[in-house]
């Protein structure tokens, strides 16, 4: 581990302590970053229970590879990369039912948002994200929901910044089509 390049000394101390077997230090890391991981996995997967499993997998995977953490990036970015990759794997794993039921913006499977109970903005966000292709969804989630910069998003997804910007623009266009179709805008 390259201690000098770590951005947060506090995170470094916790990681070193966790590597020495101190589980309460690792628990502190989990508590510190679970909100970041929750935002990404729940927004990407759409189902809270499945996202919870993926979230656990993110931290367990990090625990097992903690010694390889170089500190080149912030811990939040590092965990976000694991969360995005595991979420995309999960989406790919169940791609049969996922893509066929959600990818077509113009299909009739969009729920009608006429009743008051389903007018909740969180439902609208959830439904519209599910309708986005995973490649656009991941950019929208990282930029708009998680609030990462374009540079950080590019680093997490391992794509050029220009690609992030173009996917973001196309993703936003598709989102607009979706919420227009939902008749909430």
């Amino acid at each position: 581990m390259n201690k000098g390049r770590l951005k947060s000394g506090d995170d470094l101390e916790l990681i070193v302590s966790a590597l020495e077997g101190n589980m309460s230090s690792f628990k502190t890391i989990v508590e510190r970053y679970q909100e970041t991981v929750a935002k990404i996995t729940i927004s990407m997967i759409g189902n809270k229970n499945d996202a919870d499993d993926i979230g656990q997998e993110v931290f367990i995977s990090f625990y097992k590879s903690m010694g390889k953490f170089k500190g080149d990036s912030k811990l939040s970015t590092y965990l976000a990369r694991i969360a995005i990759n595991l979420s995309l794997n999960e989406i790919k794993r169940r791609s049969g039912r996922w893509i066929t039921t959600t990818n077509n913006i113009n299909d009739d499977s969009l729920p009608s948002i006429n009743s008051e109970e389903s007018l909740d903005i969180q439902n609208i966000i959830n439904i519209s994200l599910k309708k986005l292709d995973p490649e656009f969804r991941s950019v929208v989630v990282l930029r708009h929901i998680q609030g990462f910069s374009t540079k950080e998003t590019a680093e997490i997804l391992n794509i050029p910044q220009g690609t992030v910007l173009s996917r973001l623009a196309r993703g936003q266009d598709k989102l607009k089509q979706i919420i227009t179709k939902l008749d909430v805008i």
Binding site: M23, V30, K39, D52, G55, I121, Q122
Partner: peptide, 15 residues
């Protein structure tokens, strides 16, 4: 402002 959260006890489940 969308801020979904895991259920309580998430860190305990991982430990």
């Amino acid at each position: 402002n969308y801020n979904p959260k895991f259920d309580d006890g998430f860190s305990d489940r991982i430990i």
